[in-house]
Structure formats: structure tokens, C-alpha cells
């Protein structure tokens, strides 16, 4: 019963979204190439998966997202910890991190494609770049917010530096770190698509361009967008599940 109560508003919101979408199409009398109706997109979505168009592109994008997120988040954890615990590191790195974050990834992506090619490396780098900042900042904030008393207690019990970091600091900072990862994992999806737009042979970003610019198959474009959204939501839910397992529901 409790689970039903939790799922019901989500299902109601989805139904409302589809109904409003359908109403806009009917009232506006929009043709398919401007705004396809939800049932047209749903049918194209099923057909694209059934005839195998979507699968290879999804595998490509998902690989880029997962590897890019892994690399970006791992680096961000290390740098975030350093920023939290070393004034020198903060002074040295902060300006560059903020500058990198402020630079539009859309402008950087073609350069990265030029330097690292249009293969997996460039996409992973773009995903890692876009994931890095939110995870690094959340890690830094999380580590800094660890109760000083707790750290003193650890030291008084002769815990090693490694033990303090692993058992106290990271454990206590986990809610913030995982909060950053929630944001980061959805940004990784955007990073992969932007990277594919800058140059690729496969991936959901490529399929969007094909559907829009070569095939003029707008329902396929919407079906691809739906797939991307589903990937983003699924990865977000995975992080939430991990968070619940490690931190508990809040």
C-alpha cells in the first residue's frame, strides 16, 4: 500500500504529461514533422527498438557515459578531498576548476574531437570534464563539513590517516558526495551527446542528427530523446538506490 502511494503521484504526473502533450498536438493541429503525437512517438520508439536501430547507438552512448562518469567521478573524489584538506591545493586548483566549469562544453567538444579523435577517448574526456566539477565540489563541501569532534575522537583512538579518511571522513561526507554524483551522472549523459555531436559514427547523439538532418524522421528523433531521458533517469535512480543502501533513506 505504501509503495502504491509512492508510485501513484509519479504515474499521475506521467499521464498528465502525455495528456497535455496530446492536447497541444490536437488543439494546435501540428503536423508530425513539427510535433508528433505521443502515440506516434511511442510506436516509433517500439519499432526502432524492434528493428535494431536503437540498440547499437544506445550501447555506444551508455558505454561513453559509464566510463566517462567513472573516470570523472574518481578524479573528482581525489581532487575534492585535496581541496578540502589542503589550502595550497585549493589556491592552486580552484581558479582552473572554476574556469573549466565556466567554459561552455559545446565550445570545447570540437577541440577535444580534434585533439583526441572522434572515438571513445574524446567522449570519455568530455563526460569526465562535465562530471568532475559537481562531484569535486560536493566532495570538498562534504569532507569540510565532517564534525571536527569526530575526527578528534578518531585521532585519540590512534586511527591512522587512511582509517580516518576511509572510515570517518568519506563515510560522513557520503550524502554530499552522492548528491554530487546524482547531478554528475545526468550531466554525463549530456556530455556524451555533446561529444557525439562534435563527431562520431555511432551513439544516440548521432542518431538524433541522422533523424533530424538526413532522414527527416522527427518521430525517430523524439524516440531517441525518450531513450536518452530513460538512460538519464535510470542512472539517477541507480545512484539513489546506492545512496539509500549506503546512507539510508532521508
Amino acid at each position: 500500500m505504501k509503495r502504491l502511494q509512492a508510485v501513484l503521484p509519479i504515474a499521475a504526473a506521467a499521464v498528465l504529461f502525455v495528456v497535455v502533450w496530446k492536447l497541444i498536438v490536437v488543439v494546435g493541429n501540428y503536423p508530425v514533422f513539427i510535433l508528433p503525437a505521443p502515440e506516434v512517438v511511442a510506436s516509433r520508439f517500439v519499432r526502432a527498438w524492434a528493428d535494431g536501430i536503437m540498440t547499437p547507438h544506445t550501447i555506444t552512448t551508455l558505454s561513453e557515459v559509464l566510463i566517462g562518469f567513472g573516470v570523472g567521478a574518481a578524479l573528482a573524489l581525489v581532487v575534492g578531498y585535496l581541496l578540502a584538506r589542503s589550502r595550497l591545493a585549493e589556491r592552486l586548483l580552484s581558479p582552473y576548476l572554476v574556469a573549466a566549469q565556466a567554459t561552455p562544453i559545446l565550445a570545447l567538444a570540437p577541440l577535444i574531437a580534434l585533439w583526441f579523435g572522434t572515438g571513445l577517448t574524446g567522449k570519455v574526456l568530455i563526460c569526465a570534464l562535465i562530471v568532475f566539477f559537481p562531484v569535486a565540489v560536493s566532495t570538498m563541501v562534504g569532507i569540510r563539513s565532517v564534525d571536527r569532534g569526530l575526527l578528534e575522537l578518531g585521532r585519540s583512538l590512534r586511527a591512522t590517516r587512511w582509517q580516518i579518511m576511509a572510515k570517518l571522513e568519506i563515510s560522513a561526507a557520503l550524502p554530499q558526495i552522492l548528491g554530487g554524483m546524482r547531478v554528475g551522472v545526468t550531466l554525463a549523459v549530456i556530455g556524451a551527446i555533446v561529444g557525439e555531436w562534435a563527431g562520431a559514427d555511432s551513439g544516440l547523439g548521432v542518431l538524433i542528427n541522422l533523424a533530424r538532418g538526413s532522414l527527416f524522421d522527427i518521430p525517430l528523433m523524439f524516440a531517441t530523446l525518450l531513450t536518452i531521458a530513460l538512460i538519464g533517469v535510470s542512472l539517477y535512480l541507480v545512484v539513489v538506490l546506492i545512496e539509500r543502501r549506503l546512507v539510508g533513506a532521508r
Binding site: 503536423p31 508530425v32 514533422f33 538526413s214 532522414l215 527527416f216 524522421d217 522527427i218
Partner: peptide, 12 residues
């Protein structure tokens, strides 16, 4: 070459 696929998709 864009007109051919576009018309085939119903773009008027």
C-alpha cells in the same frame, strides 16, 4: 538531396 527524404517523410 534533402528535399527527397523530407517529402518522403511527409514534410510539405
Amino acid at each position: 538531396t534533402s528535399v527527397i527524404p523530407a517529402v518522403s517523410q511527409g514534410i510539405p
